[in-house]
């Protein structure tokens, strides 16, 4: 079983729940992002999501857009994603999943990208704008190396698509909490519960909920019905206003939502 899935199941069975933390690679610089990931890992994140800055991030709200734009303006290069992963891996064992829009992967070469993920010590990848219907090359490349391949399901997904996307995923299934882009939401929709319920009914892969989670209370709530809570915008914002200390503080705060 994949390392990510093992952790999700153990944390579920022990009643703790799981916190997945997103941060952009290269933001604001390569070394800063390495320090950020290490701090998140040491202060309560069970799984790290390494975001690849991209010029056209259609799933992202303003906070992540501006952060990734800044990383690119500071000269971020795609290959540095793997350097970040290697440097974080030297310091912590926490599993890492890359989160990348599709075109950079395509340009790098799908098989080469998968190989680089494996070589650098990442566990797999989440692909926000790649649906399994278009993802045969990635699924092949990942399967060959036993890398996790995480696809999305959404409140709008038909039952047939929830089933197909769950079956195509390894590691976990990414349940999008709400119809919208990344960013904080005061209230998480009832929709999140419904979509998680559909995935759970299939009894296949575990599922984590992402988009809109920013408080310990929301982390607790999500973990009461799903296998993990994914947080991105709130971490980026905490870093922006309070630097590494602010990020550390935010991680500890959100981890208090775990059992």
């Amino acid at each position: 079983m994949s390392k990510v899935e093992t952790i999700l199941r153990q944390n579920r069975d022990s009643g703790r729940g799981t916190l997945v933390g997103y941060f952009p690679a290269g933001y604001p610089t390569l070394d800063d992002s390495v320090a950020a990931f290490v701090a998140m890992a040491k202060n309560g994140c069970d799984i790290l999501e390494v975001g690849v800055p991209y010029s056209d991030p259609v799933m992202d709200g303003l906070v992540i857009q501006q952060a990734t734009e800044k990383a690119l303006a500071n000269g971020f290069r795609l290959s540095e994603t793997f350097e970040v992963i290697r440097k974080v891996r030297e310091q912590v064992d926490t599993p890492m999943l890359v989160m990348s829009y599709w075109n950079p992967v395509l340009r790098y070469g799908v098989d080469n990208f998968a190989q680089a993920l494996e070589d650098s010590g990442a566990q797999g990848m989440i692909t926000p704008d790649l649906i399994p219907d278009e993802g045969a090359s990635w699924i092949d490349a990942a399967t060959k190396r036993d890398l996790d391949h995480v696809f999305l399901v959404a409140p709008s997904s038909s039952d047939a698509r929830v089933k197909a996307n769950s079956a195509a995923s390894q590691g976990f299934v990414y349940s999008v909490s709400t119809m919208g882009i990344t960013g904080e939401r005061a209230n998480l929709d009832q929709l999140a519960r419904q979509v998680v319920g559909k995935v759970k009914d299939l009894g296949t892969a575990p599922t984590c909920v992402g988009v809109g989670i920013s408080s310990a209370e929301q982390v607790r709530e999500v973990n009461s019905y799903a296998d993990g809570a994914i947080v991105g915008t709130a971490f980026v914002k905490a870093y922006e206003s309070g630097g590494l200390e602010g990020l550390t503080e935010k991680t500890r705060e959100l981890a208090r939502g775990l059992g």
Binding site: V58, L152, A154, S156, R161, N165, M179
Partner: peptide, 14 residues
């Protein structure tokens, strides 16, 4: 061609 978009949009495209 194809449909390289986030899953939440697929239902609307369908």
């Amino acid at each position: 061609g194809g449909r390289f978009v986030p899953e939440p949009l697929i239902a609307a495209l369908d």
